[in-house]
Computed example of a mutant assay.
Amino acid sequence: MNFRILIGPRRRNRRLGTEATILVRDYIFLNTDLKELTLGGYAFNPRAQRVYEKAGFILDSIDKADLEYEGEMIDALNMLLTRERWEEIYYKGHTLN
């Protein structure tokens, strides 16, 4: 399963992206038998990448020059979280602050 979120400028810096990502992540792995969760972001948004990494995702691949943004070609970052990695995080009680 792949998902995306968008937090508008007026709601940033309130940990809403982190909370939303963790809620979706845990819901999926607690209530389905999916083996992995993927998501994508763009290289011009390192804040999002940090949120995803805090939630346990790892960089899986990069699609070079995937998006033209303001006249510049931007890489897409593809991130992955396996059920096995999620179980390590979730059941060992790691905090994600």
Rank of each mutant, 00 (worst) to 15 (best):
E36I: 14
G17S: 09
D60W: 01
N2V: 13
E84Q: 12
H94S: 14
R12P: 01
E84Y: 03
L16H: 08
E84C: 02
G40D: 08
L81N: 01
K64T: 13
L59T: 15
W86A: 08
M1F: 15
G17F: 00
R25Y: 02
A48L: 04
Y69R: 05
M79Q: 04
L39T: 00
F57M: 03
K64G: 12
P9Q: 07
K35E: 15
F57L: 11
T82V: 09
E36L: 04
M79H: 00
R14I: 07
N31S: 09
P46F: 04
Y91E: 09
R47D: 02
T82Y: 02
E19K: 14
R15A: 11
A76G: 10
R85F: 04
Y69N: 10
R11K: 15
K35I: 13
R4P: 05
Y27F: 11
D66L: 12
K92T: 14
S61G: 01
D26Q: 07
E72H: 02
P9M: 13
D75W: 09
Q49E: 14
I74Q: 01
R85W: 00
T38I: 03
E70W: 11
T32N: 08
Q49G: 05
N45Q: 03
N45C: 05
I28C: 03
T18G: 13
M73G: 12
L16R: 07
E19H: 06
I22F: 13
S61L: 06
E68A: 06
F29E: 01
E68P: 00
N78S: 02
R14H: 13
E36C: 07
L96A: 06
Y42M: 13
A43V: 11
R83I: 10
E68N: 12
G17M: 04
R83L: 02
N78T: 13
A65Q: 11
L16A: 13
G8M: 10
M79I: 12
I7A: 07
G17D: 02
D63R: 05
A76M: 06
R15F: 09
V24H: 02
M1E: 06
E70V: 05
M73Y: 11
G93K: 02
M79D: 00
E53Y: 12
N13M: 02
K54N: 05
D33Q: 08
R15S: 11
P9S: 15
T18W: 06
T21H: 15
L67D: 12
K92Y: 10
D75M: 02
N2R: 10
